[in-house]
């Protein structure tokens, strides 16, 4: 398999490759080779820490789109049991860039099984899969499927967990013909008005209105290296700066990282990721995500339906 890494990850990957080589070479466990491996591992950890302490907004943007980053389906596998996927908008098609269904959240400590509707944008891993998922860019039908599932969860009093990971709603002819704008507007409306707890988490890219449609929760959380923005840094650079080389600058000005948005009180919590990013240890990332969802759902469970709804309305009223 070809190694997939970002430019700023390159020195880390080089060290990791050397460690791997030594490990393969050292099958007979020669002591001084073992020491060398340990040294290299220490060196690697220090390097990762250094790089990630100084990480800038543009690097975080790249991490949020990392080809190995866990997607909605990965988290569903890692944090839920008995996931039953539901399909289709009952109008036109099943949009595979948004997936959703009912399941139980795993809870190791208490053994309590929390029912949830989990729904999220889904990107693809290889070329064929990417095409099938339309690169995580929904058509109106994806949003209409989401509305249908939100209403189902509302009727059955099942809390909603939404995972956001999209470059944006798809800009295409069919999408416009079938009312992309209306689909997003009504999805926000439906999600704001359910009377069950809603926890929304930006797990990767939170691209504009196409992200917000699934992010109108009572709690809005972000994974440490995710982004959430009104426009992509590239789009902003080309429209406002009229210069596509200003992408890094745009990423800074727009304030799109979890840290920025927590500071601006736009989001409620940052979910920490393993050293090097969620893709370095998917299990750890998933476990952090799950704990945070469970904690927030427990808080919200104390409120009745009407106050959950008004809290949500008031939360978004105050921006």
């Amino acid at each position: 398999m070809a190694f997939q890494y970002l430019d700023f990850e390159k020195p880390i990957i080089e060290l990791e490759q050397r460690i791997e080589e030594l490990k393969t070479f050292n099958l007979s466990n020669v002591a001084n080779v073992g020491d060398e491996i340990k040294n290299l591992e220490l060196k690697r950890n220090r390097l990762v820490k250094d790089i990630f302490e100084k990480i800038n907004n543009w690097e975080i943007t790249q991490l949020s789109r990392h080809p190995l980053r866990p997607y909605t389906m990965d988290y569903i596998e890692l944090i839920t049991d008995d996931f039953i996927e539901l399909h289709g908008d009952r109008g036109f098609m099943d949009d595979k860039s948004i997936i959703g269904g009912f399941c139980f959240l795993k809870d190791g400590e208490t053994g309590k099984r929390q029912k949830v509707l989990i729904i999220g944008h889904q990107k693809g891993r290889n070329t064929k899969d990417k095409m099938c998922r339309n690169f995580g860019m929904p058509h109106p039908e994806g949003y209409r499927k989401a509305q249908r599932l939100f209403k189902l969860a509302d009727r059955y009093k099942i809390p909603i967990v939404s995972l956001v990971d999209t470059p944006g709603a798809y800009p295409g002819i069919g999408a416009e013909e079938r009312g992309q704008a209306e689909a997003i507007a009504t999805t926000i409306d439906v999600l704001l008005n359910v009377s069950v707890p809603v926890v929304s988490i930006i797990i990767g890219e939170g691209g504009s209105g196409g992200a917000l449609a699934l992010a109108a929760g009572n709690r809005v959380l972000m994974m440490e290296y995710s982004t959430y923005s009104v426009i992509s840094p590239e789009g902003c650079a080309s429209i406002l700066y009229k210069d596509t080389s200003k992408t890094e600058e745009a990423a800074n000005s727009l304030k799109i990282t979890a840290r920025d948005l927590f500071g601006l009180k736009v989001i409620d919590e940052i979910i920490s990721e393993p050293l090097g990013g969620a893709h370095k240890n998917k299990a750890e990332a998933a476990s952090n995500l799950k704990n945070s969802i469970i904690g927030n759902l427990e808080d919200l469970a104390r409120k009745d339906g009407e106050s959950l709804r008004t809290d949500r309305i008031n939360k978004f009223r105050n921006f």
Binding site: I184, A185, I188, D189, L192, N193, S208, G209, L212, A216, Y228, S229, V230, I231, C236, I239, L240, S253, L254, K255, I256, L261, L264, V266, R312, I313, F316, R317, N318, F319
Partner: peptide
């Protein structure tokens, strides 16, 4: 559309206006 110069706050206006319409 949304005003880029106010970043995420512009995006949030979408939810804010929708919220008030539902009231």
């Amino acid at each position: 559309g949304a005003r880029m110069q106010e970043g995420i706050f512009s995006l949030m206006q979408m939810a804010e206006t929708v919220a008030m319409i539902s009231e």
